[in-house]
Design a protein around this nucleic acid. Structure first.
Lengths: 211, 211, 211, 211
DNA sequence: TTCTAATCGAGACGGTACGTCCCGTCTTGCC
DNA sequence: GGCAAGACGGGACGTACCGTCTCGATTAGAA
């Protein structure tokens, strides 16, 4: 039942307790068949048009097997996003300079959103956030949290090195590191190539220094 | 028949040509009843859970009246967004300084996304963009276009005043003006108050100057 | 407005009185276009699937033009049946013998139901009769009445000639003349050729004589 | 799954084969709830105005449950008619005389058409027959067939007893037994009481004898 | 090993919404 | 006023999913 435990409790009606006596256990083969089918279905039809029926059919699995693992279509999607995103926890190596660290951080973000499926689900979830505050909180904790922590490290190193003032506005700094790139990647949609990242790094460093 | 003409052709099957002879005409009273009902329904139930049946019922209107105007639920929503967004074309007065113009521009964005319904629909549409490139193009033209134009004006004035280098990277400049705030408003979700905007203005100006 | 006068008042919500003063008049060309289109539509799609919209479209006529003439789809159909049926009022010439008259009467019935469209509408109307007693009465008066009158003439001549007893059961006699053939034509559906009619004439005469 | 098997294949898209493995099965309780609701609805509103929505609502059942059993409203109605009609297969006991057998046969017909719902559906189906030859064939086989067989028995017994000539025209004899009464019951609509049946028996016997 | 309980695929269940079609009425502008 | 065109409110059609529930058959832990 680790599966359901990985979904924040807000998102599940009630995570099963269980395993009392002569119990059976969710078969991993079934779980992974569903996961694969879901990813394929998402890639083909998109989130809004993905149906549980279709996923189960594609996985050669009964619908009940899906609902035994996740309490709803949304929870299933969310769990998927989280897993995919968790697989790539941002880890920004100390490059020795603020500019290097900033560029490293940007590269990590780009790498993570490179998969268009991630982009889709992320946007869908962001949209859903406006309806469900609980979901927003869950996402902020599991998805945004680790990323902001990594960004905070970049800022801290800058302060330690003396490249940034000690009283820098952390909140604004984090936004400056994350938002411009994320906004372009998810909302604006223009190309994000090496040159762009290089110039973006420059202006972010300038911005941070002035903050 | 301005109604359907206002929807980009990609979004409707085919905008009606019409008015051959003694023709009937979509009644404005019905259109506005539907629009009102749709906005109310969106506010109450959210995009995903808004049904055409419910909108028609609330408007005291037959379902056919809806489908006579828009070819699908999606097209209806989209047209709505466009209309709402078009009602508030950004107009940044010349404040005499780059910092003033930047702040003015940020204020306009905040004002437009203030209505949480706009925020919802905007995110839903952004999400849909990842599935339908045509839709993305339409949105970029009608929604993003005017905003980027306003931002471009801010940059131009800065160059004229000598506050910005003449060879400034326009693309990056526009992103810097738009993305950080939009990212926070739509994706990150923290508070955006006067103090935040003031500090954001500072770092943007710093960033632009260095670009 | 003779048109609507021909529909029994039971079938129309309220037959127009009209022609009071500076009145306009329904154009005969439109009426006949509708009639033709209706017949064609019936022949192609059948009663149940015939829609007023389709008839009007085929006639190149506005729907209102139809509803100006008949209060409902059903009334229109009924009026049509009545007209078609009235065009061919049964007229059984005195052949000089009971057997000859009976055969003549049967021939008239066969001729009238020969058109499969008449058969369809007749059955549809019979079916509708079970729901609407008023319609039943109207049909009995305008459709069945004249036919039973013609059959009654056959019986009367037989009595006059002395071929039938004077106290013959008229009701049963009429049924015997009409039902067997009508039942076969409309309900059973087997072939009705000359030989069949000859033999049927024989048994009907035998039956009548014994009544 | 006998339900769908009982519907002639012409009427259903394709009767389900089924029961491959641990399969689900249409629940009899639901089927009978639908059947009851349908009969009630027919009695109240009549065939043409009976809607699947209303039947499902009255049965406390989802619309899908109906469409899982029958492919269309029409097929459902037809299956119903067949079932109702099959429940009462005509069985004419040997009364020892032709007149007695004829009267017995007439009584059976009257009994079967006594339920006005049967009458309605029968006429509706007869009407539909003119549009769909396949339906006509199906009805002739399942509905008319057994009745004509029973009538044939009456004729055979008459021949055996020497009351009828051995070379009697069977086809015409069957028509004479069935059509007059059916015509009156379904098409003409006058009263059919004991006296009427008595006299009708007399003329039919006379007709048969002369055939 | 045997028992036993939760698993499995399959799919029926009550619902809700979809987008289409038609009914009979109403509206608009031309004649 | 009639006319063609067609929008109107209403409501049924048949389809597709949702999330739940029910079947036998299978499988795996506890006794």
């Amino acid at each position: 039942m680790e599966r359901n435990r990985s979904v924040p409790s807000i998102l599940c009606g009630m995570p099963r307790k269980r395993e009392p006596a002569g119990a059976a256990v969710l078969q991993e083969s079934v779980t992974s068949a569903i996961t694969t089918a879901l990813f394929d279905e998402l890639a083909e039809t998109g989130y809004a048009r993905t149906s549980v029926d279709a996923v189960a059919r594609r996985a050669g699995v009964g619908k009940a097997a899906v609902y035994r693992r996740w309490p709803s279509k949304q929870a299933m999607l969310l769990d998927l996003l989280e897993t995919a995103v968790r697989r790539n926890v941002p880890e920004v190596p100390d490059s020795g300079s603020l500019a290097g660290d900033v560029r490293g951080f940007l590269d990590v973000i780009v790498a993570q959103v490179a998969d268009p499926r991630i982009k889709r689900i992320a946007l869908d979830m962001a949209a859903e956030t406006t309806r469900s505050p609980d979901l927003g909180a869950a996402l902020r904790e599991t998805v945004a949290g680790p990323r902001r922590a990594a960004a905070a490290t970049v800022l801290s190193r800058g302060v330690e090195r003396g490249e940034l003032p000690a009283d820098i506005d952390r909140e604004l700094g984090l936004d400056l590191l994350i938002s411009p790139l994320l906004g372009r990647l998810l909302l604006i949609g223009g190309p994000v190539d090496d040159a762009y990242l290089t110039r973006l790094t420059t202006v972010i460093v300038a911005g941070l220094t002035s903050a």
